[in-house]
């Protein structure tokens, strides 16, 4: 029988649903990462592992440890690292001819302000790492850009990479699309009056149609980063069409499942088992 490691830290509804579906198909060994000791080069037998830790550093390091045991992990440590860093992933997406918003990196307060001026206000200033819209800020003028950059400089080295992005005048929504292997089974609009549309920040989820252009973009984005199970954030630019913002390599999906009725947990479980049998 196929044996799957299920790596997690917090057991949210998303994780519980996948675990339940997996248990209906195969033998599952849950590994609670935050209370485990994982030896690099250790040994434990499984056909495959699924990574579901919310903490990036836990996810990344525990994936690397399990990979050292010779067990393939979905998603791989490289895919996790690549997707987590917005600058790195945007660079890879761009090189793979995936349309992305114009983005400048700056490394001091003055250059962050200059970058903002170059893009034209308003601009979005984000940390290169992080999720749920955390610390993403909209600078409407030079004074705001300078204040944001100054604050970031005080937060530590990770925040001293100023990721300055053009503001996309999106139609009050953005898109979160699920990718599982070579399929895009469901997508939602995240609707909000606020420019941050993350559902974790109050955005309302509504079903979105996955047209062939969106499907192609989502799959190419995930493939470019080596992400097998991912959540791709996309905005609709009035002139350029779809632009990819980022790819999440341990995606939440409960809102997608809730509003579209698609059994995302079941699809993830089946994909993992299929991969284990290959």
């Amino acid at each position: 029988m196929v044996r799957v490691f299920f790596l997690y830290d917090v057991l949210r509804l998303d994780e519980k649903m996948i675990l339940e579906r997996l248990r209906g198909l195969v033998e599952v060994e849950p590994i609670h990462v935050s209370s485990s000791i994982l030896e690099i080069g250790g040994y434990a037998e499984a056909d495959i592992a699924l990574q579901r830790s919310i903490s990036f550093y836990r996810a990344m390091s525990s994936t690397a440890a399990v990979e050292s045991w010779g067990v393939r992990v979905i998603n791989s440590s490289l895919a996790l690292a690549l997707a987590e860093d917005k600058a790195w992933s945007l660079s890879v997406l761009y090189r793979n001819k995936i349309p992305v918003p114009r983005t400048l990196l700056a490394y001091s307060i003055e250059s962050a302000v200059e970058a903002s001026r170059k893009l034209g206000y308003p601009v979005v200033m984000k940390p290169v790492m992080g999720s749920w819209g955390r610390l993403a800020a909209l600078a409407s003028d030079e004074e705001a850009a300078r204040a944001i950059a100054e604050h970031r400089e005080m937060l530590g080295s990770m925040y001293r990479v100023h990721y300055v992005q053009e503001y996309i005048d999106k139609p009050g929504r953005d898109i979160r699309a699920m990718c599982i292997g070579d399929e895009v089974p469901a997508a939602i609009y995240r609707v909000s009056e606020h420019w941050i549309t993350n559902t974790a920040r109050g955005g309302r989820a509504e079903p979105a149609r996955v047209d062939p252009i969106l499907e192609d973009l989502v799959l190419r984005s995930c493939h470019a980063l080596g992400v097998e199970i991912g959540g791709v954030d996309v905005v609709e630019d009035p002139e350029r069409g779809y632009l990819v913002l980022e790819v999440n390599a341990v995606p939440e999906y409960k809102n997608i499942a809730r509003v579209t009725g698609v059994d995302v947990a079941g699809l993830i479980a089946r994909y993992v088992v299929e991969q284990a049998r290959k």
Partner: peptide, 11 residues
């Protein structure tokens, strides 16, 4: 006690 959302948490 649950540690709460940390800076490297994400989706």
């Amino acid at each position: 006690p649950f540690e709460g959302v940390q800076e490297d948490w994400g989706e």
